[in-house]
Design a protein around this nucleic acid. Structure first.
Length: 614
DNA sequence: GGCTGCGAGACTCG
DNA sequence: TCACGAGTCTCGCAGCC
């Protein structure tokens, strides 16, 4: 491979001139930081299969780089969502790059269970010896203008090119062209956009909330000590507030087991067996607390304490570290971090912000996420996405009919399992009596929805259901049968999935996404079936995001920004003036981005603050 | 004795 | 054996200097 280090525009132009028009080109960027707001481009390397070069970045190169990128047939990158945001800083219009090929995503969909870092793949797939593989940290030690660093950077683009040559035919052979080129590649631009945009935060509100909860926690600790006669000392802090220091640690499970048992309460719940505790150990988690609830004041206080402590330490205390100077939080969106095709988020994880509908916290943490002046937040949520996925996977006629005619499935299941005697026609939302029954049996409906329908999708057994719902195993089995008798094809599809897995060692969804599983482990069969639904939902979400991102071209006046995907929900920001115009258009795009045997329904809500959306 | 790494257990979300 | 997929925090033990 011919290597060159380019130090002038003339040199770069000459390299580009020798590039064969409409050939594949690999690119790897070097930058100072992972966070878009802080990163500064340092340089990039290119490889066309025969030659490679490294270019220290200068702003005057952006035009030449843009036209080179637009003249290649495919732009190969490893972790494209990162390179795209560096390109954006280099003033290259990353949204209009036509054909991208991400070798990290390629490796991921070809085997979701194996490592997919460039260095891992160089070793495993390209058989590059360990001694030739440097990390960024090792290479940068020699300085960004050293031969070692240049070679490090050029190696990366060479390896990406070589991985492309390996992966491209495999993707085709395994029937993953649609998944890769139509779902995954467009979505990498969405990830890039979201990590550029970030989510605006009301800093003052965040700090006020933090201090308020800190005070509540001090009080809670004091009450906990008093209710169980635990000695404590108090300490006055510089700002006049005070801290309660108990003689025991409320965050320690073994210590809490002691405290609870000394109160005369019995703990029967055990944790799962582990290396250190082959028989498991006594647990003070949700189950224990739920069972002991009401038996001692301490238990109820402790329940409130654990959730408040989580809110404080995981969210309120750390949020400050993640806010950039423009008051936006840019979390890491991991394009290949799951085995099912979903996205994952970290630093911070904005996908698991406490939901006011699910928790009974004294504050709504989501209130701190807001729209800037003149903009509105739009939150678009797939309604019943997983259940619709079940209809698609099972092709059950009754389930399909129910969705097509707006029949309340959860009420139907409740009606069947509990034999409520609601006439069939009243199960349709269009029927005048539907609302009446829904209100009358709300509790039962919720119970069956969360206790039977969703758990079944995850492969729950009668044993587990009985334990969780505090019912007999026979009754649990009766409810499971009640569901499966209503939708008999669901059972068939679970069996079909199992026999496919047994035969092939993997399962695959209709878009060609696969999950490879160990067919000798019983758990694999639950994971396999759940993957069909979760993986399909992930694909739909990706298609929806990409489709919405295209609206930016058609309606630039909307100033549409994609902020965050949360599994079945997309959060966007839009110019106030166009909110009402945009909603039906976005809804239509999301509902029709993937062909299914049942209609999708997307609920769209909007507000100035994320916390208002419930 | 202090530091670091890691498994376990708790919580958060869809 | 018994509910899928994620991330983060804290505790407490093991191993190292």
């Amino acid at each position: 491979m011919q290597r060159e280090v380019i130090k002038s525009l003339v040199q770069l132009e000459s390299w580009c001139k020798d590039f064969a028009y409409m050939s594949p080109l690999s690119l790897d960027t070097e930058a100072t930081d992972l966070n878009w707001y802080k990163l500064q481009p340092e340089g990039f390397s290119l490889c066309d299969g025969k030659r490679t070069c490294y270019i220290s970045w200068k702003p005057s190169y952006s035009k030449t780089l843009s036209s080179l990128i637009n003249s290649c047939s495919e732009l190969i990158m490893h972790n494209a969502s990162f390179d795209l945001k560096v390109l954006q800083k280099m003033k290259v219009d990353y949204l209009s790059i036509p054909n991208i090929f991400d070798t990290m995503i390629g490796a991921w969909i070809l085997n979701e269970n194996k490592e997919r870092g460039l260095k891992d793949l160089a070793k495993r797939i390209l058989n590059i010896p360990d001694s030739d593989i440097l990390t960024y940290e090792e290479a940068i030690k020699y300085g960004s203008n050293s031969e070692t660093f240049y070679n490090y950077a050029m190696n990366d683009s060479i390896w990406a090119y070589q991985l492309y040559e390996v992966e491209k035919p495999l993707i085709e052979k395994q029937g993953m062209d649609y998944l890769f080129y139509e779902i995954e590649m467009p979505f990498q631009k969405v990830i890039a956009e979201m990590s550029i945009n970030g989510f605006l935060v009301d800093k003052e509100k965040a700090f006020k909330m933090r201090d308020f909860v800190a005070e509540l926690l001090v009080e809670k600790k004091k009450q906990l000590c008093e209710s169980a006669n635990i000695p404590f000392t108090t300490q006055t802090l510089i700002d006049g507030s005070y801290e309660v220091i108990p003689t025991i640690n409320f965050n320690s499970t073994p210590q809490m087991v002691n405290v609870i048992e000394e109160l005369g309460l019995k703990i029967t719940e055990m944790t799962k067996p582990s290396k250190r505790f082959p028989k498991g150990q006594k647990s003070v988690g949700k189950e224990t607390i739920r069972r002991l609830s009401g038996q001692h004041k301490f238990i109820d206080l402790y329940d409130e304490y654990t959730s408040l402590e989580k809110l404080y330490t995981s969210y309120l205390l750390t949020v400050e570290n993640f806010i950039d100077e423009d008051d936006r939080i840019r979390c890491d969106l991991n394009a290949a971090g799951t085995v099912t095709g979903r996205l994952s988020a970290s630093n911070p994880n904005l996908e698991n912000l406490p939901n006011p509908l699910k928790t009974s916290l004294p504050v709504n943490y989501r209130d701190i996420f807001i729209a800037p002046k003149g903009k509105t937040l739009i939150v678009c949520d797939y309604s019943g996405q997983e259940l619709r996925g079940l209809a698609e996977v099972s092709q059950d006629p009754a389930l399909i009919e129910a969705f097509k005619n707006d029949k309340d499935i959860h009420l139907s299941v409740t009606n069947s399992c509990l034999q409520l005697g609601i006439p069939d026609e009243a199960l349709y939302t269009s029927h005048p009596d539907n609302k009446k029954y829904k209100t009358q049996f709300k509790q039962e409906r919720d119970k069956l929805k969360n206790g039977v329908v969703f758990p079944l999708i995850y492969g729950k057994t009668a044993y587990g259901m009985a334990k969780d719902m505090n019912i007999s195993e026979d009754l649990a089995q009766e409810w499971i049968d009640g569901f499966l008798n209503l939708y008999p094809k669901v059972r068939d599809s679970i069996d079909l999935c199992a026999s496919f897995l047994k035969r092939s060692g993997y399962v695959k969804n209709k878009n060609g996404r696969r999950r490879r599983l160990n067919k000798t482990i019983p758990k694999s069969y639950r994971q396999g079936f759940n993957f069909l639904i979760q993986g399909l939902a992930a694909d739909e979400m990706k298609l929806a995001c990409s489709s919405c991102q295209k609206l930016k071209f058609f309606y630039p006046e909307w100033e549409l920004k994609l902020l965050l995907p949360v599994h079945d929900e997309i959060v966007m920001e839009i110019n106030d003036t166009y909110t009402n115009e945009a909603i039906p258009i976005i809804k239509n795009r999301m509902e029709n981005c993937m062909e299914l045997c049942v209609p999708e329904v997307v609920d769209i809500k909007f507000s100035k603050s994320y916390g208002d959306i419930k």
